[in-house]
Write a protein that binds this DNA or RNA. Structure first.
Lengths: 238, 238
DNA sequence: CATACGATGACAGTTTCTGTCATGGATTCA
DNA sequence: TGAATCCATGACAGAAACTGTCATCGTATG
């Protein structure tokens, strides 16, 4: 039983089956020991269903927070941005605080969150001269892209390239490159079948519409997407 | 969905099957609505296994986050800074998320936190030319001030004013003015008995030391501290 | 009027958890 | 020593909470 406690302290989240195998006892015994540990006052959280498991809840806290996915992402982004800009007071706490926030999310959301965070790339802030002609997309317009990323669906829009030629595009969004104040959508152009970058201020606001026919499988995409260095080079090259 | 909430409030513990029968919908729908209610912030405890069920847990949350004061302040700052800089994806959620974070704190802590947040004033980012000669204090050095604010104790340090004259100062810290990349400590100079501003890059790193003899009572100070507008004017004037 | 979309239902399957019974070793007692 | 008892464990069976996926159907929507 004490071995169980030690094992739980060691690993974060596991299934009862795994623990039973590790201790080479039956699952029934593990459940019995879990009941004993709980009786002893330990807090062991349990999630039913596929992907579930048990984990030791270290220390109950006076601070209880329930955050939605979007809220955590938003805070994550903010912390990330500010970290790049300048060192802030208590900035050491930002890392640990965010880690706790991520850990606090309900299990099925956690994976989703990590995937979501991974597709937003925050670059260094641009120089003052560039910032003047701001190209940050409008809130409402941005909402369409937020939904596309959250729900993994495709997008259609009219695009004006750097030569002034307009075309209708059909993309599968892969990532967002934020290089204030310029925003880029990293995506696969479905018609041309190759990865492209689109400056968001060159996308026609009126005709942008989600296209659920193409659902991005981010797990697959991750294997194909060039690493951030290459995207960055692309961004720099224009 | 609202009927589900009402029903859960009505009865103590039920099974999903019962609820589904009562509302004459499928269990799948009940689970879907449960997920929605949870996302909305409701805390619904669930017990697997025979004799189990679901119940509305008033107040007790399965997702417990232990955030230290410093962690919350850090996140608060980050969100605040990024909000000023540029609009971010999911930025709408930042407000609600922060509200939840602040609201989640235990009562005695909450007041403390608000006081702490109020003493950090974040100005607009400086122009690129100024940013070059960065004056952001080093992490370790900053730690001394962090502690001073958290624990409300005084500080002693050597200061070099704009005319190059060095002097030993003894202050009661009131606030922090962050105008990237320049940092100021707003404080009361105990020897001179009047409010002063100190550029942090002009404070001698070596001789800065906390002085617990003077414990600041922020509640009293707040009544004396000039409003932010005046501090800003002071900062601009040099 | 066709089309898309949102809500629902019908599975199938995963995981936690309880109840029950059988087994087998250790302890205790006559 | 032998028998009775107790206890830990394991092997089921089954309940209940969950997730994922697909089909369906009514309703907006263009």
């Amino acid at each position: 039983m004490d071995e169980l406690e030690h094992l739980l302290r060691g690993r974060g989240e596991t299934t009862v089956a795994d623990v039973a195998a590790a201790l080479s006892v039956s699952e029934r015994t593990v459940f019995r020991d879990l009941a004993l540990l709980r009786e002893r006052g330990l807090v062991i959280a349990a999630d039913s269903g596929p992907g579930g498991g048990i984990r030791l809840d270290r220390g109950r806290s006076p601070h209880r927070v329930l955050l939605t996915l979007a809220e955590v992402v938003s805070l994550w982004l903010a912390a990330r941005l500010s970290q790049g800009a300048t060192d802030l007071p208590w900035s050491g706490a930002a890392r640990t605080g965010l880690a706790k926030l991520l850990g606090s999310l309900a299990r099925p959301r956690a994976a989703e969150l990590h995937a979501l965070c991974r597709r937003v790339i925050v670059g260094p802030p641009a120089s003052e001269s560039v910032r003047a002609r701001s190209a940050a997309p409008e809130r409402e317009f941005l909402g369409i892209f937020e939904r596309a990323f959250s729900e993994r669906c495709g997008l259609r829009f009219d695009y004006t390239d750097q030569n002034g030629r307009r075309s209708h595009r059909h993309i599968e969004p892969h990532g967002l490159l934020v290089e204030p104040p310029v925003w880029y959508v990293l995506a696969r152009d479905i018609d041309k079948g190759e990865p492209r970058m689109f400056r968001m201020d060159r996308i026609s606001r009126a005709k942008t519409v989600p296209d659920a026919r193409f659902v991005a499988d981010f797990a697959v995409i991750d294997a194909q997407v060039p690493d951030r260095g290459r995207w960055h080079a692309l961004a720099a090259g224009g």
